[in-house]
Amino acid sequence: MNMKEEKWYKKKKFRRIVLGTVLLLLLGIGGYAFSIFKSFNSAIETMHQPIEKTNKRDNDISMQKQDPFSVLMLGVDETANNSGRTDTMILLTVNPKEESVKMLSIPRDTKTEIVGNGTVEKINHAYARGGVEMSIATVEHFLDMPIDYYVKINMEGFKDVIDALNGVTVVNDMDLTYKNDHFPKGEIELNGKKALVFSRIRYEDPRGDFGRQIRQKQIIQAILDKGTNLSSLLKIDDVLGKLGENIKTNFTLKEMLSIQKQYKSLNKNIEQIQFKDGNGGKEAGVWYYYPDETELSEIKQTLKGHLLLK
């Protein structure tokens, strides 16, 4: 072999090594992407739990046409031996053309009619009496508006999602202590167990249920922020698995992809609405929250107007 042939052979060998290395990387990435795709599909299939469409809509809504829609988020304390109650009830109205979201936190102790059960009691009892369907029917009656979608989150199991993300970071606006757990004011790191405690504190906060709603929103936002970090992608299989186990929704995969594609900028324009003018009191030893009727009427009109309803 002369020098020219040897040089050509070495160059060819080098190209084979480079191409082989690139091929292995592509195969590795491709295999990882396929694994993510399989995990994603599996998680969506596990999450998807359809229910009957609301009868408060005259016409079906369309994501493609950018029709406004509503979502009821239910944070549920649920175990294998206990159907649980809703610890959190958050209503979202989404208006794609206005690129806006309105978010209402419904106090869990609100006294109202539990539709389908024939009782008047705390609104968070609706889930224990009749699951997601009764919760939706009760909120629809309470706010006089349709609920198009729901997302149910098992709060007890959701701590596993946070642990799969190696914890979350929040900025605590108030020094709080609950039993053996202390949460100082300022930026704090939380694992799944502590995040669950942090999100549930109520009586130790002078703001009561409203303070807890603020912390729950912080935890949800922290999970979303952490989940979009590159380092979290390495644990995507674990995260997707935990999400599939602890979330149920009637959103289809097509609708989720449509929201991600068309409405991903909406989270920059979220208006938080709260009940401020109501009061509380006890009946037969049970504490209730009584919304101010004028404020409730204004909230109804605001939300219905956002959905372009009369």
Rank of each mutant, 00 (worst) to 15 (best):
280 G>R: 03
277 D>G: 04
284 A>P: 00
274 Q>M: 03
280 G>V: 02
292 D>P: 07
273 I>Q: 06
284 A>D: 15
289 Y>E: 10
252 T>Y: 01
253 L>R: 10
257 L>F: 13
272 Q>R: 11
260 Q>Y: 11
279 N>R: 04
283 E>Y: 04
256 M>K: 00
252 T>P: 02
255 E>Y: 02
274 Q>E: 09
287 W>V: 03
275 F>T: 08
288 Y>E: 10
281 G>W: 01
251 F>K: 04
263 Y>H: 14
267 N>E: 12
258 S>I: 00
294 T>M: 11
256 M>I: 11
282 K>F: 11
295 E>F: 04
283 E>C: 00
268 K>I: 07
291 P>K: 07
277 D>T: 08
274 Q>C: 00
287 W>K: 01
260 Q>P: 00
286 V>N: 03
280 G>K: 02
285 G>N: 11
253 L>A: 06
254 K>A: 05
288 Y>F: 15
263 Y>M: 15
279 N>V: 00
265 S>M: 10
275 F>V: 08
292 D>T: 05
293 E>P: 01
260 Q>C: 01
280 G>W: 05
258 S>F: 02
251 F>E: 07
261 K>D: 14
259 I>D: 03
279 N>F: 09
292 D>M: 05
262 Q>K: 13
293 E>G: 03
261 K>A: 14
287 W>D: 11
263 Y>Q: 15
256 M>D: 06
259 I>S: 02
269 N>V: 03
261 K>N: 15
273 I>C: 04
261 K>I: 10
264 K>M: 14
277 D>A: 11
281 G>A: 00
273 I>P: 04
286 V>T: 15
295 E>H: 05
283 E>D: 08
251 F>H: 04
287 W>T: 06
277 D>Y: 12
288 Y>M: 05
293 E>I: 10
275 F>M: 12
280 G>E: 12
260 Q>V: 09
269 N>A: 07
281 G>T: 01
270 I>Y: 06
274 Q>G: 00
